[in-house]
Design a binder for these strands. Structure first.
Length: 466
RNA sequence: GGACCCGUAGUGUAGCCCGGUUAACACGUCUCCCUGUCACGGAGAAGAUCGUGGGUUCAAAUCCCAUCGGGUCCGCCA
């Protein structure tokens, strides 16, 4: 007999069906045992009575979280015994056959609560149990719905989803790279992508015109409540698009997304406010203002776009110029002398996407003029010949006909955390890492064997006098 | 790299300031009773060298130092 879901049993009243799942609770009254069976659809009450002696004896052994399968007859509950709290509350299953697939040790923590009270160390170590709790299952479901909506929305507008490499090139500027040693090329390294930025620009040269990807971005920096070593972003790049077209697209996407998947939410202002960086800083003292009218209201979403960021910022610690966004951002001037002489005065076609006081994405139009790109890198302190070597693909590709283009990359995890009112992004990521980038469940990072190191031409040198 | 907060039965907390009986409570677990519960109920039991190491003291969960683990923030995050 084919197994059906708990919530489907209502359709089989009076018939014999087979269900399976985890034991949510056992309520034994001596001569009558109630078991709530949990599967991905919900709960179903199963009743064991002594008139079926073998089944009853077996059922007495059952404990919470055991995995069982039950064949039995679906019947209406007696009058007054209906439980309105569960979907299958007016029916119950009278078993004819019971199969125990596996027993379960007592769980290290309760899973019938929201889970915030359990230490995260425990939750992350036993993430596969933590994910059994209803809140986490709901978060994972909604995450998938959001991703599905985005894919649907963009595909319908002729965007092409393209998966770019995970093994790629280390680049200067920006965050620390995760490096992967090459076995076949001794002494050389791959880097995990901080974003698909360079590939998606190559795709513009390739004539894809409308690209997107639900991409993982990896950065070897210290995590925060809203930052992980790896996070998921909606990476978008469009040819021939103006800044306005890109922001309009993102606005349409999020307005529709919220309407469809979060109907209880109210967006403070549509169209989303668009303000320059300068004005925003003057008015709010931050580049990610919280524009909610009532900050107590958990259902208010205040989106905004902040535009016209400065191209460069002076890094006092390193005594050099850095870029606010990334070096491929288009400056608002093509005057190369000015870029080099007065970098502090140059604005960029760069924009941030802000929600309730959090940056949930940023993007820019990109430089296609190679002289401008070279000048930007020179301001950042790179030598001309190094630039051409490091970014040869840009200098090669852009000579074969490059369209003007730009894009944006809204963060999926931050958006979900905000819209689900979660205190940190780990609550919406299936398998997040700790504050020092470890995975407690898998025990990652971990040591590798001498053989592996040898094959990779790597030698571990112990640091002295720490 | 820096600052701050936390660490006590399986889980969550109290006790810590102001050192002194058998380290308390809730949930969970186990045993027994219970045929309509659904957070079932009732009776009972087991379970903690108070993160670890050292110090002060007649005496340390409690005070001091170090260390380990978790979190938040600053730096960092093109």
């Amino acid at each position: 007999m084919q197994r059906i879901l708990n919530t489907e049993t209502a359709k089989y009243l009076g018939k014999t069906v087979k269900v399976a799942g985890w034991v949510n609770t056992v309520r034994s009254h001596g001569k009558i045992i109630f078991i709530d069976l949990r599967d991905r659809s919900g709960l179903l009450q199963i009743i064991f009575t002594p008139d079926k002696e073998n089944l009853y004896t077996l059922a007495q052994k059952i404990r919470p979280e055991w995995v069982i399968g039950v064949e039995g007859k679906v019947s209406k509950r007696p009058r007054g015994m209906v439980n309105p709290k569960i979907e299958t509350g007016n029916i119950e299953l009278h078993p004819e056959n019971l199969e125990i697939f596996s027993q379960a040790k007592t769980l290290p923590f309760s899973i019938d609560t929201l889970g915030y009270e359990i230490s995260e160390e425990k939750r992350l170590k036993y993430r596969y149990l933590d994910l059994r709790r209803e809140r986490m299952r709901k978060n994972l479901k909604i995450r998938q719905k959001v991703l599905h909506f985005i894919r649907d929305f963009l595909t319908n507008q002729e965007f092409i989803e393209i998966d770019t490499p995970i093994l790629t090139k280390s680049t200067p500027e920006g965050a620390r790279d995760f490096l992967v040693p090459s076995r076949l090329q001794p002494g050389k390294f791959y880097a995990l992508p901080q974003s698909p930025q360079q590939y998606k620009q190559m795709l513009q040269v390739a004539g894809i015109e409308k690209y997107f990807q639900i991409a993982r971005a990896l950065r070897d920096e210290d995590p925060r409540a809203d930052r992980q070593a790896e996070h998921t972003q909606l990476d978008i790049e469009i040819s021939f698009a103006s800044q306005k077209e890109i922001l309009d697209l993102v606005e349409r996407l999020y307005v529709n997304l919220v309407k469809k998947l979060f109907p209880e939410k109210r967006v403070t202002k549509i169209p989303f406010p668009r303000m320059t960086y300068k004005k925003t800083m003057e008015k709010y003292g931050t580049d990610k203002p919280d524009l909610r009218r009532n900050k107590e209201n958990l259902n208010e979403l205040a989106f905004a776009f902040i535009t016209d960021f400065p191209m460069f910022e002076w890094k006092e610690g390193e005594k050099k110029w850095g870029v606010m966004h990334h070096p491929f951002t288009l400056p608002q001037t093509e005057d190369i002398k000015k870029i080099k002489k007065e970098p502090d005065k140059i604005l960029a076609f760069q924009y941030d996407f802000v929600l309730n006081g959090y940056e949930i994405g940023s993007g820019s139009l990109r430089t296609t003029n190679l002289e401008v790109l070279t000048a930007v890198f020179e301001v950042l302190g790179h030598k001309k010949q190094d630039i051409k070597k490091q970014f040869r693909h840009y200098f090669d590709a852009f000579r074969y006909g490059v369209p003007p283009h730009g894009g944006i990359a809204p963060g999926i995890d931050r958006f979900l955390a905000k819209v689900l009112n979660e205190p940190n992004i780990r609550e919406v990521i299936p398998f997040p890492k700790t504050g020092d980038n470890r995975d407690l469940m898998m025990d990652v990072p971990s040591e590798v064997t001498e053989e592996q190191l040898k094959e990779l031409h790597i030698k571990i040198v112990k640091r002295k006098n720490r």
